[in-house]
Amino acid sequence: MRILLWHVHAAWTTAFLQGPHTYLVPATGDRGPYGRGRARTYDWPPSCVEVAPDALAEAEVDLVVLQRPEEWQLAARWLRRTPGRDVPVVYVEHNTPRGDVPDSRHPMADRDDLTLVHVSHFNELFWNAGGTRTAVIEHGICPPAAAYTGELDRVGVAINEPLRRGRVTGTDLLPRFCEVAGVDVFGIGAEALRGHLPATAGLYDDPPQAELHRQLARRRVYLHPMRWTSLGLSLLEAMMIGIPVVALATTEAVEAVPAQAGVLSTRVDTLVEAVRWLMREPRTAAEVGMRGQAAVRARYGLDRFLAAWERLFKEVTPCMSHPSTAR
């Protein structure tokens, strides 16, 4: 199949692109939010092809994967076809609802022209989709090349835009952990935290994915302070590497990290003490990391993820009243 999707979440897309299809990613001259093209810091396969918006009207497209509400109109204008009628549509919801939780109404609620796919059962539970058909396809993780060493008695954290997102990502909690260990923050906009954290904190702005994994693997502990985000792929990647994780027991993290495979709590004091404990017990830290690695391999393996998407593709593509290449 030829699948059109936008570059929105690079880590999730990296796993999605491992399937057997051709993936068309819009690219504009300014590389703006609706035309980023191929990722620059992730290893994407050649089957992911950049396409200019004005070339899409003549392109063969078998399926459109939307991830933001405004992409519906973009798809209609660029393809010159009606999404959901002339070409099948799957909408992937990556995020937890914002606003009137738990009554938040999804932008694609009460529609019969698409399938709404959630990346976690928590998201499906909390979004009100009305009569729209929904499915859950949990994350799949490409096995990182890095292996845990824990040689640095420091804490690794991966947060994109930590200053802007603030309480959502638990950025305000980081100073508490800086009191018991050196904290290193990786991600887009990490440098913006300079002056907001102690001078002992390391700030690493948007490293390539392979380098991020290599650096995290050297840290003793991975901290996941997210209050209200969907299940962060960085948490699963850290577990896949074998890093022991300490995380807020919020959203889907309570499903992803089984007992004895990490430390979860809604009490920040408990998490701070867990970091202190793992810092002084490197052998125990390695054992916890190994249990987490086994858990994430069993639940979030790439083969399971791709197989689930293939089943969904077979369900949604025969249901169209018109061929996908109609113009």
Score class of each variant (00 low, 15 high):
320 M>H: 04
33 P>R: 15
44 W>C: 02
137 I>L: 07
296 V>N: 00
285 A>P: 08
217 A>D: 07
190 A>F: 08
87 V>C: 08
215 Q>D: 13
18 Q>G: 05
261 A>S: 15
132 T>R: 03
262 G>C: 05
16 F>R: 14
211 E>F: 03
12 W>N: 12
145 A>V: 05
132 T>N: 04
187 G>T: 12
99 G>N: 09
120 S>L: 01
313 F>W: 15
120 S>G: 04
53 P>M: 08
202 G>T: 10
1 M>R: 07
264 L>E: 01
325 T>R: 11
292 G>I: 01
33 P>F: 14
128 N>P: 01
311 R>Y: 05
216 L>E: 00
178 C>Y: 00
219 R>Q: 15
50 E>N: 11
8 V>Y: 15
306 L>G: 01
292 G>M: 04
299 R>P: 07
1 M>T: 08
115 T>D: 06
285 A>F: 13
9 H>I: 10
234 S>E: 09
157 V>N: 00
307 A>G: 09
18 Q>L: 06
304 R>V: 03
317 T>R: 13
6 W>D: 02
153 D>T: 13
96 T>A: 15
321 S>W: 03
78 W>H: 15
102 P>L: 12
279 M>D: 09
301 G>F: 05
156 G>Q: 06
258 P>Q: 10
7 H>I: 03
301 G>R: 04
124 E>K: 09
154 R>N: 08
180 V>M: 03
69 P>F: 04
274 A>S: 14
35 G>F: 10
262 G>M: 02
288 V>D: 02
220 R>T: 13
320 M>V: 03
125 L>A: 14
72 W>N: 05
188 I>F: 12
327 R>P: 06
88 P>N: 01
273 E>I: 03
302 L>D: 01
17 L>W: 00
71 E>L: 11
40 R>C: 07
193 L>Y: 10
121 H>M: 03
217 A>W: 00
273 E>G: 06
41 T>E: 11
209 Q>A: 12
100 D>G: 02
113 D>K: 03
121 H>Y: 08
212 L>H: 09
323 P>V: 05
290 M>K: 14
44 W>Y: 14
12 W>G: 08
15 A>F: 08
34 Y>H: 13
101 V>L: 15
263 V>A: 12
268 V>A: 05
184 D>G: 03
189 G>S: 11
93 E>G: 02
152 L>G: 04
191 E>D: 14
184 D>F: 01
274 A>N: 04
287 E>L: 15
272 V>P: 04
18 Q>V: 03
172 D>T: 11
202 G>W: 11
210 A>Q: 13
248 L>C: 08
268 V>E: 12
55 A>N: 13
180 V>P: 01
155 V>K: 00
265 S>N: 10
